[in-house]
Write a protein that binds this DNA or RNA. Structure first.
Lengths: 217, 217
DNA sequence: ACATTTATGGAACGCATTGTCAACAAATAA
DNA sequence: TTATTTGTTGACAATGCGTTCCATAAATGT
């Protein structure tokens, strides 16, 4: 976390959060490796040493950017998973909001998390772990929704909740990747819409009658 | 293309294709930006100048690597789309082979094409176009299979072939992304298997495509 | 044999990049 | 005021990067 207040000494002349937002845009557009500190310095509009003093080195700055991105940009899609009672509708809304996020022309292309995943391997270990944790958190949130839906009878007991959760995470990531290369945003909406056809209805084709034994994972 | 034969002069002491394969591994593991020429020189085991003489600069080498990767590694999954008559089985096999490719522990993590998508924006324009063309080619190949299946009556006439093709491309990309971060390869097989549940049967359950708030095409 | 062509090895160049330093400025606490 | 703490500034060091050059080695054609 970046400290934002000091009781003694000269106060900061720039807004930390605004600087972080600007840095986010640059990293998002160009990627971690390809972004230079000089670019960041110029974009943020402060001195080089001030940037280092406030955030540490490039890796620390990027980690702060990732954290802020998670709170600022992925909140709206993720919220659908807890706001909406019906599990199918919750996930559909999550996907649509994700697509809207990816299609927003005011923002850089793709998803910063997904972009960072592709870079993992060449980059630092901490960055990879950070992003991997974010994705794992998403899978878990989706899994909770689906499992609750199964308990409440919206899904058949034969549905594989873990596989479904993994599938919708994969769909979201696929959309993010396509959004990076496709100028036409209709692709990602096609993907979101089509993926909902994989949703298991309770009366799945001819499986045995549900047992009362709680199973899963 | 790289010339491999010369009638006059001293013959090359290394195998061009083997060098390209080694370079592929390095780029694949570390990414284009993060890979240095020194690493490539060391990995290939030849001299710096020889590498430049044979392939040109870093970008040209990477383009050669991309071309070779397309032929060497994506051929087997793609071949399923033309080999197998039944459209559903063709796409399912394509996905499974893709998953097998991604799960192969002898190979670097992820898919080189998918990994390279990130470089679009930070990297060169030619690389972006190259990768985008590859993805567009995949979408088209899948589209052909689905459309043929529709003509031959395997799919209902109400199926949206374009959306389906985009969906399965997105699934493949999502799998490639998950393969980068998940140590457990069961995730990608879950994704491949679950995505086939979105396949439209001829006697689709009455309602046709699910409704989705907001936009489409 | 000689001239020509190409590959090799190692050093070197020019430049970009990350990160740091010491001096100066501006605030608070006493 | 004075001391202290902290932010700002511009320049600078240190390193690593992609790329090229040059002398040498090894093949072919005449």
């Amino acid at each position: 976390m970046i400290k934002n207040e000091a009781t003694r000494g000269r106060p900061r002349e720039f807004d930390v959060d605004a600087a972080l937002e600007t840095a986010t845009q640059v990293f998002w557009r160009k990627g971690y490796e390809a972004t230079t500190m000089s670019e960041l310095v110029e974009a943020v509009g402060i001195n080089r040493a001030s940037l280092y003093a406030a955030f540490g080195d490039k890796e620390a700055l990027f980690l702060a950017v990732l954290e802020r991105y998670g709170k600022e940009y992925s909140q709206r899609p993720m919220a659908a998973l807890t706001e909406i009672a019906d599990p199918r509708e919750a996930i559909e809304t999550f996907l649509v909001r994700t697509a809207e996020h990816l299609a927003d022309e005011r923002l850089p292309r793709g998803c910063l998390f997904a972009n960072s995943i592709l870079e993992s391997g060449g980059g630092s270990e901490r960055i990879s772990r950070n992003v991997a944790n974010g994705v794992a958190g998403l899978e878990d949130a989706i899994y909770q929704v689906i499992q609750r839906g199964q308990r409440e009878g919206h899904l058949g007991l034969d549905a594989d909740c873990r596989a479904l959760a993994r599938f919708y995470v994969g769909v979201a990531q696929g959309m993010a990747l396509i959004a990076k290369i496709s100028a036409d945003s209709s692709s990602i909406f096609d993907i979101a819409r089509t993926s909902m056809a994989a949703w298991p209805t309770r009366a799945a084709r001819g499986q045995g009658q549900p047992t009362l034994v709680g199973q899963s994972l």
